[in-house]
Simulated assay, not measured.
Amino acid sequence: MTVFVEAVAIGLAIAAPVGPIGLLCIERTLHHGPARGLATGLGAATADAVYASLGAAGMGVVIGWLTALAAPLALTGSALLLYLGIATLRRPQAAGAAQAKEGGSLLGAYSSALALTLSNPMTILSFIAVFAGLAGGHAPGNGEALLMVLGVFSGSAVWWLLLAYGGGRLLSRLGGRGRRWVDRLCGLLLIGFAGLIAWRVLPTIVAF
């Protein structure tokens, strides 16, 4: 159980820094309610669990394949972030709570966050290093690997639950003007993340 607790802490640490998924969770919680925000976070947590599974298994062939696809996947993620950022900036101010909760679906929120998080396959390398430390430098057994993966998912899911429902209560107190400023901030930051990812990846493609 020590391994599980440590993996939960790792999942929390991976999910907690404010990044594009965190911004999406905040934005969707603000306009569509905490359930939509939680679905977004669980999509990211599922992607973390997928990469954690590969990292725990130490699948060298899969790792090499994902590394080779890192640049195109990262550019795809950059394009998705750009689209989401522009859509957030262009979002009309909701006339009321009922209108704010319209549009999209829980499955759409989940799948978009899953795809966006999976567009960064280099995350698996971090999990390999972390799990090597948790396992004491040896390949983890099946039971130990399962505990690690479940721990990462649980820790990540707990963070998104707190952000969606705890943060949702705070966001619900904002007036129309406050909501619009949150939209602008989230939209600009999402576009900024898209530009940063593209700036990091394009030189590697040009060099190739």
Rank of each mutant, 00 (worst) to 15 (best):
Gly55Asn: 01
Val62Tyr: 13
Met122His: 07
Ile26Val: 13
Glu6Arg: 11
Ala56Met: 05
Ala49Ser: 03
Leu185Asp: 05
Ile197Val: 09
Ala94Gly: 01
Gly85Glu: 07
Gly151Cys: 09
Leu116Glu: 00
Thr204Asn: 14
Gly168Leu: 10
Asp48Cys: 02
Val61Phe: 15
Ile14Gly: 03
Tyr51Val: 00
Gly43Phe: 00
Val18Met: 15
Pro203Arg: 03
Ser105Lys: 10
Leu42Asp: 00
Leu174Phe: 07
Leu174Ile: 03
Gly19Phe: 04
Met122Gln: 05
Gly167Asp: 08
Ala100Trp: 03
Pro92Leu: 07
Phe153Val: 04
Ala7Tyr: 12
Ala9Arg: 08
Cys186Ala: 05
Arg90Cys: 04
Gly33Gln: 08
Pro92Met: 06
Arg173His: 02
Leu189Cys: 01
Thr67Phe: 14
Ala39Thr: 00
Val206Met: 06
Ala16Pro: 09
Gly167Gln: 11
Ile14Tyr: 10
Gln99Asp: 07
Val152Phe: 14
Gly141Gln: 02
Ala39Leu: 08
Leu114Thr: 01
Tyr110Phe: 14
Thr123Ile: 01
Leu189Tyr: 06
Ile128Gly: 07
Met1Val: 06
Gly187Phe: 12
Ala74Pro: 12
Gly192Asn: 12
Gly108Leu: 08
His138Asp: 12
Gly167Leu: 07
Ser78Leu: 05
Leu146Ala: 09
Ile14Asp: 15
Gly137Glu: 04
Ser156Arg: 08
Tyr165Gln: 07
Ala100Gln: 06
Pro17Lys: 10
Val8Asn: 09
Gly136Met: 10
Gly108Trp: 13
Gly64Gln: 11
Gly22Asn: 13
Thr67Trp: 13
Val206Phe: 11
Leu69Met: 14
Val152Cys: 14
Gly167Ser: 08
Ala100Thr: 05
Thr88Val: 11
Leu150Pro: 07
Gly195Lys: 06
Ala15Asp: 07
Leu150Asp: 13
Ala139Ile: 01
Ile21His: 06
Pro140Tyr: 04
Leu202Ser: 06
Val130Glu: 00
Ser111Val: 10
Ala194Met: 09
Gly133Met: 11
Ala49Trp: 06
Leu69Ala: 15
Thr2Cys: 08
Val206Pro: 01
Asp48Met: 04
Ser78Ile: 01
Glu27Thr: 03
Ala47Leu: 01
Leu82Gln: 05
